[in-house]
Amino acid sequence: MRRLHTQVQSILNNFGSSVLTGREQEIVRSMLQGHSAKSTAEVLGISAGTVNVHRSNIYEKLDISSNSELFSLFIDAMTSVEVSGNQDVLKNYLSH
């Protein structure tokens, strides 16, 4: 079970690295962990408005329009490709 947790954490940490900026990746990780814009803003020391701007940019880059689509994309990417090392599963998923 611990191995699975470590693997999922690695995938989460690298998710979107081929497409998103570092700050956008931080926002995505927070969103995937269930945090609101307000709690994400508090943790990152930015305004909730700034989080929402990043969220809009993320949605545009990933061609999605909601948190539920982000979760679905994450799960699809994680379960559809071979995972090895610290790679971005999204990059592999989008190339298929």
Score class of each variant (00 low, 15 high):
Met31Lys: 01
Ser65Phe: 11
Val43Cys: 06
Glu60Pro: 04
Val53Tyr: 14
Asn13Trp: 05
Ser36Gln: 06
Gly49His: 11
Arg29Gln: 13
Ile27Met: 15
Gln25Phe: 05
Ile64Ala: 10
Glu60Thr: 10
Ser39Val: 04
Tyr59Met: 14
Gln9Ala: 02
Gly45Pro: 06
Leu44Met: 06
Val51Gln: 14
Ser66Arg: 04
Ile46Thr: 09
Leu4Asn: 07
Val53Glu: 12
Gly22Ile: 09
Leu32Asn: 03
Leu20Met: 07
Ile64Thr: 08
Ser65Trp: 12
Val19Ile: 14
Val43Lys: 12
Arg23Lys: 13
Ser18Cys: 15
His5Lys: 12
Thr21Leu: 07
Leu70Glu: 10
Arg55Asn: 02
Leu62Glu: 12
Ala48Val: 03
Thr6Glu: 14
Asn14Pro: 03
Ser39Arg: 00
Asn13Gly: 02
Ser68Phe: 15
Ser66Phe: 07
Tyr59Asp: 12
Ser66Leu: 08
Ile27Leu: 15
Ser39Pro: 00
Gly16His: 10
Asn13Ser: 03
Glu60Phe: 01
Leu12Pro: 03
Ala37Trp: 00
Gly34Pro: 02
Val8Pro: 00
Glu60Ile: 07
Asp63Asn: 07
Ala41Ile: 07
Ser17Ala: 13
Glu26Ala: 01
Ser10Pro: 05
Leu44Ala: 00
Ala48Ile: 06
His54Leu: 05
Glu42Cys: 06
Ile64Trp: 01
Ser36Arg: 00
Ile46Leu: 12
Gln33Glu: 15
Ile11Glu: 02
Gly49Val: 11
Ser17Trp: 09
Ser68Thr: 15
Ala37Leu: 00
Leu12Ile: 11
Ser56Tyr: 10
Phe15Asp: 13
Ile64Glu: 14
Leu44Cys: 01
Asn52Leu: 11
Asn57Asp: 08
Asn13Phe: 00
Gly49Asp: 11
Thr50Trp: 02
Gly49Phe: 11
Ile46Gly: 07
Arg29Ile: 04
Glu42Thr: 01
Ser18Asp: 15
Arg23Trp: 09
Gly22Val: 13
Gly45Met: 03
Glu24Lys: 10
His54Cys: 09
Ser10Trp: 01
Ser47Arg: 04
His35Trp: 09
Asn14Ala: 01
Val53Phe: 09
Glu24Cys: 05
Asn67Met: 11
Leu4Val: 03
Ser66Tyr: 09
Thr21Lys: 07
Ser30Tyr: 01
Leu12Gly: 02
Glu60Asn: 12
Asp63Pro: 01
Asn67Leu: 15
Glu24Met: 08
Lys61Ser: 08
Ile58Val: 15
Ser68Cys: 13
Ser56Thr: 06
Ser30Asp: 14
His5Val: 10
His5Ala: 11
Gly34Trp: 09
Glu42Gln: 05
Ser17Pro: 08
Gln33Thr: 14
Ile11Gly: 04
Asn13Gln: 04
Val51Gly: 15
Val51Glu: 15
Ser47Asn: 10
Phe15Ala: 04
